[in-house]
Design a protein around this nucleic acid. Structure first.
Ligand SMILES: [Zn+2]
Length: 341
DNA sequence: CGTTTTTGACCCGCGC
DNA sequence: GCGCGGGTCAAAAACG
């Protein structure tokens, strides 16, 4: 509640310089208020999804380990030979009780980066080729907080290019980014965490147990679950990575010409500006069939506006940060460069 | 300039 | 002791 109004004040002040009787300003205030509420709702949803995902993932890990145990009894010793050494090493029976967790993640096979987006920040400290897997194994340490002992290994699966196996070791020293965001929310924070720790885990456990009984008979058990996890990750990542962007502009000297538009992401905002310029070009030369322009023309258009700025939502501080014309020009350059490959 | 990635050197346990 | 498979260090390079 408090955070909402603070956010709006902070963002609006640099731009709505004087009068409050301007209808456009009122529109902006209304819209910002609406967006703020939407953002808050999204935040709650995201936190919920994220918590849910974490809990589900924990259970899935257990199940996958159980599955390995079942499969490895006849002859499939593949996993035992390859995976464990030094601090990672541990007889499989103890694996569950220790802090070692293995996660299967379905991922785009063409993606070479091997980045598993899990809400933490990792510093790579090694890479090794391994005996019976053509793809290398990468070693990461958590760099989110100083002294955090958590490590993870990531390697593409031998049998499926679209799956990476991540092995985590240790407990984090700190909250994850999602939990931090929930905490920054303040007043609702306790509600959501309490609701979570009181009812849901039990429910999840029952659900997962039933699911396991059913799915264990399915041969594609692993990939099904991996796909489910991947879907969750994609969902979270989608909500997280797009920075809501509001473009404020005043085309002419007339203050009444002030207007704004909002976009789901920075790059969409850049596209929006391009579209605006293209529309203006078309209005100016209706005869011309297809129009062409280069980045300098676009710069001239941007500079020709009486006023232009962008508000970009920063997820980590829960607020819109103002950006000036120069920033827009630079982002536009990057954007066009990316489009040109 | 601070941070992360890269990459060969190094180290360590294990089987021989 | 030696070699092999794996894990880590750290210096240099790359990134942003
Ligand atoms: Zn950590």
């Amino acid at each position: 509640m408090v955070a909402t109004s603070v956010t709006i004040d902070l963002n609006l002040n640099p731009l709505s310089t004087t009068d409050h009787d301007n209808p456009v300003d009122d529109d902006i205030v209304l819209d910002l208020n609406k967006k703020s509420k939407e953002n808050k709702k999204l935040k709650e949803l995201l936190t919920f999804v994220w918590d849910n995902y974490n809990s589900l993932q924990t259970d899935v890990k257990k199940l996958l380990q159980e599955k390995e145990e079942l499969e490895s009894s006849p002859k499939k010793r593949k996993f035992d030979d390859t995976v464990q050494q030094s601090s990672w090493k541990m007889p499989k029976e103890d694996l569950r009780s220790s802090g070692i967790k293995r996660v299967y993640v379905k991922i785009d096979p063409s993606d070479k980066s091997l980045v598993v987006k899990d809400g933490y920040q990792w510093r790579k400290y090694g890479q090794k080729v391994t005996r019976d897997n053509p793809s290398p194994r990468a070693y990461y340490r958590c760099s989110f907080a100083p002294g955090c002992p958590v490590k993870k290994k990531v390697q593409r699966s031998v049998e499926d290019d679209g799956v990476v196996i991540a092995t985590y070791e240790g407990e984090h020293n700190h909250r994850s980014t999602m939990q931090e965001a929930a905490y920054a929310l303040g007043d609702d924070h306790e509600v959501s965490t309490n609701r979570r720790s009181n009812n849901s885990p039990k429910l999840d456990e029952v659900l997962v147990e039933q699911m396991a009984k059913y799915l264990c008979k399915d041969p594609s058990f692993t990939s099904e679950l991996a796909a489910a996890i991947f879907a969750k990750i994609s969902e979270v990542d989608f909500l997280k990575s797009n920075k809501h962007t509001i473009i404020l502009m005043q085309p002419s000297q007339n203050r009444a010409s002030r207007t704004f538009m909002d976009y789901e992401s920075i790059s969409q905002a850049m596209d929006g500006i391009c579209a605006l310029y293209e529309r203006k070009l078309k209005d100016l030369n209706p005869a011309m069939r297809n129009i062409t322009y280069d980045i300098q023309d676009l710069y001239n258009f941007i500079d020709g506006l009486a006023d232009l700025s962008a508000l970009v939502y920063d997820h980590s501080i829960q607020a819109y940060l103002p950006n000036d014309r120069e920033w827009i020009r630079s982002r536009m350059f990057h954007h066009l460069k990316k489009l040109a490959h």
